[in-house]
Simulated scan of single mutants.
Amino acid sequence: MINFRYHVVSLTAVFLALAIGLVVGTAALNGPVADSLKDRVNGLSKHNEQLREAVNNLETEVKREEDFLTEAAPHILKDTLADRRVLLFTLPSGQEHADGIAEMLRMGGATITGRIDVQEKFIDPDNSVLLLGVAAKAARPTVPDVGLPSSEGVEKSSALLASALLDRPEGGSPVTDADRRSVLDDYSDEGYLNVPDKISGPAEAVVLVSGPPYVDRDATRKDRSVVQLAEQFDRAGALVVAGNGSSGGNLVAEVRRDPALAKTISTVDNANTVAGQVVTALAVVQQLTQKRAGAYGVGASVDSLLPERPE
């Protein structure tokens, strides 16, 4: 029969074997294996330091390039947009870089007729029927809803807003300031738009500021809503879409993918940078002076980094 003493002796033998293994293993590691491991660790540490230094150098270089462009922008843009009127229309994903774009437009001499921030509620496809009702309510004598698309709320509302905010075709009756203000108030009061400042008058061109694509379960439908908004403003006047990136379903990518829209809407895919904001202003210049559209930036399907400056 196995007794308690047998268990004690067995456990003692096991622990003694483990102790001997640790001693022998430590002695072995203190030799060539340990030296090899130390060399590898030291080599990896030095490599990491080199990579860290390279990243720091790149960050410094990018910062200096941004600083250079910030200082050069007034010289590049001077008087390119003198006496021109531009509206800033920002999507929820693009509001972080809207101020930088506005600054470049002003450097070119443009008058910003106003800034309108689209709220998520406007883009939400589930609000289509409600938006149709707001459009019917918001219509005014000089901003009628006759002849506007009426199947979807975003489409009709975008067409109504474009009619109120942009120049009318030559010979068309102008929008009164009171009617323009009333239209915007109706959408603002319902939480579809935010209008920080008073709109000073009609615009010749619109910069639609966008950002990354939607990624939630309604992403496809929301992307479609944003394209509908761009389509209606494009029909009413010159349009530049200034975004961040050119893939994954964002507005820049959708416009470039559509042969018809790409012919009339200019796109800039790096408007979150100083370089892209300068290019956005130059794209507006090209739209207004040459009636041309182009795809600019650093992403896929671009025509060039920036438009050719007019003679």
Rank of each mutant, 00 (worst) to 15 (best):
D186F: 05
K222Y: 03
V252H: 04
L193I: 01
L229T: 07
G211W: 00
S173A: 14
V240F: 06
L161Y: 04
D216M: 03
K222W: 04
P149T: 02
V183G: 00
Y187M: 05
A162W: 02
D218I: 00
N194M: 05
V215E: 13
E254D: 15
G237W: 02
L148K: 04
V183F: 01
K156F: 08
N250K: 08
V154T: 10
G191L: 02
V195K: 02
S163K: 14
A219R: 09
S225K: 03
V207W: 02
A253R: 08
L193A: 03
G201L: 06
V255M: 09
L193Y: 01
V154Q: 07
D179V: 07
D185G: 08
I199F: 03
G245V: 04
K198P: 08
G249C: 06
D223K: 09
D177T: 13
S157G: 10
S225D: 07
A253L: 10
E152K: 13
D186C: 06
L166P: 03
A159W: 03
Y187S: 00
P213W: 00
D185M: 07
G243E: 07
A236V: 09
P259G: 12
R235S: 15
A253I: 09
A159H: 06
V240Y: 04
A178G: 13
T220M: 11
P202L: 00
L161V: 06
R257G: 15
V226D: 04
I199A: 01
G171H: 08
S200D: 13
E170A: 14
P196N: 03
E170H: 12
R180H: 06
A230H: 02
A253C: 14
T220I: 10
V227I: 12
D177N: 13
L239A: 06
L166A: 06
S188K: 10
P202N: 06
K222E: 07
V207G: 04
Q228S: 12
D223W: 07
Y187G: 00
E152S: 13
D258F: 10
V215P: 07
P212K: 00
R224Y: 11
S182C: 11
V183T: 04
G191A: 02
S247V: 14
S200N: 11
P149D: 05
V227R: 04
R257Y: 14
G172K: 09
V241K: 02
S182V: 10
P196H: 04
A162H: 05
P212D: 07
G153T: 02
S151G: 12
L239D: 01
R221F: 09
Q228Y: 12
A159I: 05
G211I: 03
E190W: 11
R256L: 14
D186P: 05
S150V: 11
D223V: 11
G201E: 05
Q232D: 08
R235C: 13
S247R: 13
V183K: 02
G243Y: 06
V255P: 04
N250Q: 11
T220P: 11
S188G: 14
K198V: 15
S173G: 13
V215F: 12
L239T: 09
V241P: 03
L251C: 08
R217H: 10
E254F: 12
V215I: 13
V252F: 06
D234Q: 15
